[in-house]
Simulated assay, not measured.
Amino acid sequence: MVASISARKSVGAAVSYFKHMAQDEYYTGTGEADAEADGEWDGRGAERLALVGPVSKADFEAALNGIDPKTGERLTQIGKSHAPGWDMTFSAPKSVSVMWALSPPADRKTIEAAHRLAVHAATTHLEDHHAFTRRGKGGAIREPVAGLTIARFHHHTSRDLDPQLHTHAFIFNTAPRRDGTWGSLVSRDLYKAQKQAGAVYREYLANQLERDGHAVERYGIGFRLKAIPRDIERAFSKRRQAIEQAADTYGYRTPKGMELAALRTRQAKRPRERAALFQAWQAEARTLGFDVARARQQQAQVGGQTHHVPIRGPQVRTRSPARILPSAQQLIRAIALASRASSSMPGVQVNLRQNAGERDNDRER
């Protein structure tokens, strides 16, 4: 599970990004009631611009150019030396994605809702604590913004068509100040806050899934769902396996080498009808001898939380003493202390990758 950030270095590149985000989904039009829009607006900056609901290309491009999409008023001047925005991507743990893929439709909606709310919690944390703009000669005056303008795009598969819940949150380089004027963002603060945003996302998602009845196993500041065995996670991580095979073939051992292995095995995403993918995933699980309902029932019987397990017949519920969970702020403070030593290093792009599994989770997208 990863929170990563990268800049779109020109308006043209960002427009291409929008086309990719809007089209790069695994299902074609199926008429399903739960089929989502291409994207959705988020953030208090979007609210000020009356941007709600689906993201249109025209509104996206106007915001890229620092223009109010509704009135045509210029908000900020986007120069050639300024990035028009940044893609901050939040990716769920593989066990969460597998649980989503193998669950009944109602439970899929609950898991996906938890993921989206966790993304919103993380971007709201950025908006409230780590978004700054400059004004004055040479940008000498630095001040907090009154909100961010964000377009979110929700995707569900890896490039090898394995389940992989992830959301691209595009943060526009134009934000309202508290006096009503607009300015460009200080990008370094967003990069420095990447780990904290990831911590908020993880903590919110883990707690929400736990409240929804899933048994959660925590490790460090990460987590996984206990009902999904690690060998099942790996079976649904074909992208990861391809990267590992390429690394062995070419002798890659360093983090840079693993990135090269990821690039060597990178494929264009292949559209496929939604229902067919769920059928394929469920058939693969049956071939592996795995039944998600049975696994959740077993976890409910031996686990520690109150569970509402979706199985055929009556729901199974077990109850145990409450756990004391670390708060988001406790996690954030711990991460901030751990990252201070690197905050003065040159360069601002930092990838949040907690372990080998999470690195591969990021590369699968």
Rank of each mutant, 00 (worst) to 15 (best):
residue 3 A to R: 07
residue 3 A to K: 01
residue 4 S to Y: 01
residue 4 S to L: 05
residue 7 A to R: 12
residue 10 S to H: 08
residue 11 V to C: 12
residue 13 A to K: 10
residue 16 S to F: 00
residue 17 Y to E: 08
residue 19 K to N: 07
residue 21 M to F: 04
residue 21 M to L: 07
residue 23 Q to F: 01
residue 26 Y to I: 08
residue 38 D to Y: 02
residue 41 W to V: 03
residue 45 G to N: 07
residue 49 L to W: 07
residue 50 A to Q: 11
residue 51 L to T: 05
residue 52 V to M: 06
residue 52 V to S: 13
residue 53 G to Y: 05
residue 54 P to E: 10
residue 58 A to D: 14
residue 59 D to N: 12
residue 61 E to S: 14
residue 64 L to S: 04
residue 65 N to G: 14
residue 66 G to Y: 05
residue 67 I to G: 12
residue 68 D to A: 08
residue 69 P to N: 09
residue 73 E to M: 11
residue 73 E to F: 06
residue 73 E to T: 14
residue 73 E to R: 15
residue 73 E to V: 13
residue 75 L to M: 07
residue 76 T to A: 15
residue 85 G to Y: 11
residue 85 G to N: 09
residue 87 D to G: 02
residue 91 S to Y: 00
residue 92 A to P: 03
residue 92 A to E: 03
residue 95 S to M: 02
residue 101 A to K: 04
residue 101 A to I: 03
residue 103 S to F: 02
residue 104 P to L: 04
residue 104 P to G: 02
residue 117 L to P: 01
residue 118 A to T: 06
residue 119 V to A: 06
residue 123 T to I: 13
residue 125 H to S: 09
residue 126 L to C: 08
residue 128 D to V: 02
residue 128 D to A: 13
residue 133 T to P: 10
residue 134 R to T: 15
residue 136 G to N: 09
residue 142 R to Y: 10
residue 149 T to L: 08
residue 150 I to K: 01
residue 151 A to H: 00
residue 153 F to R: 00
residue 153 F to N: 04
residue 155 H to F: 04
residue 157 T to D: 14
residue 164 Q to T: 01
residue 173 N to S: 12
residue 174 T to L: 11
residue 179 D to Y: 00
residue 184 S to R: 15
residue 194 Q to M: 11
residue 194 Q to A: 12
residue 194 Q to H: 00
residue 195 K to M: 10
residue 199 A to R: 13
residue 200 V to E: 10
residue 200 V to F: 06
residue 203 E to W: 04
residue 205 L to E: 05
residue 208 Q to M: 10
residue 210 E to H: 01
residue 211 R to E: 15
residue 213 G to Y: 00
residue 219 Y to N: 11
residue 224 R to Y: 06
residue 227 A to T: 04
residue 227 A to Q: 08
residue 229 P to I: 02
residue 232 I to S: 08
residue 234 R to C: 06
residue 235 A to Y: 03
residue 238 K to S: 15
residue 240 R to D: 14
residue 241 Q to L: 14
residue 245 Q to W: 00
residue 245 Q to T: 13
residue 246 A to V: 03
residue 252 Y to T: 07
residue 252 Y to K: 10
residue 252 Y to R: 13
residue 260 L to Q: 15
residue 263 L to C: 03
residue 268 A to C: 01
residue 269 K to T: 06
residue 271 P to C: 02
residue 272 R to V: 14
residue 273 E to M: 09
residue 273 E to V: 12
residue 275 A to N: 09
residue 283 A to K: 15
residue 285 A to F: 02
residue 285 A to V: 02
residue 285 A to E: 04
residue 286 R to W: 04
residue 286 R to E: 14
residue 287 T to Y: 05
residue 288 L to D: 06
residue 289 G to A: 07
residue 292 V to R: 01
residue 293 A to M: 03
residue 294 R to M: 04
residue 298 Q to P: 03
residue 301 Q to R: 11
residue 302 V to F: 01
residue 305 Q to G: 14
residue 307 H to F: 05
residue 307 H to P: 01
residue 309 V to G: 01
residue 313 G to R: 06
residue 314 P to H: 04
residue 314 P to M: 07
residue 317 R to A: 10
residue 319 R to P: 00
residue 322 A to H: 05
residue 324 I to A: 15
residue 325 L to R: 14
residue 326 P to K: 13
residue 327 S to I: 10
residue 327 S to N: 10
residue 328 A to P: 03
residue 331 L to P: 06
residue 332 I to S: 09
residue 333 R to Y: 12
residue 338 A to K: 15
residue 339 S to H: 09
residue 346 P to M: 07
residue 352 L to M: 09
residue 355 N to F: 04
residue 355 N to H: 13
residue 357 G to C: 02
residue 361 N to K: 01
residue 365 R to M: 04
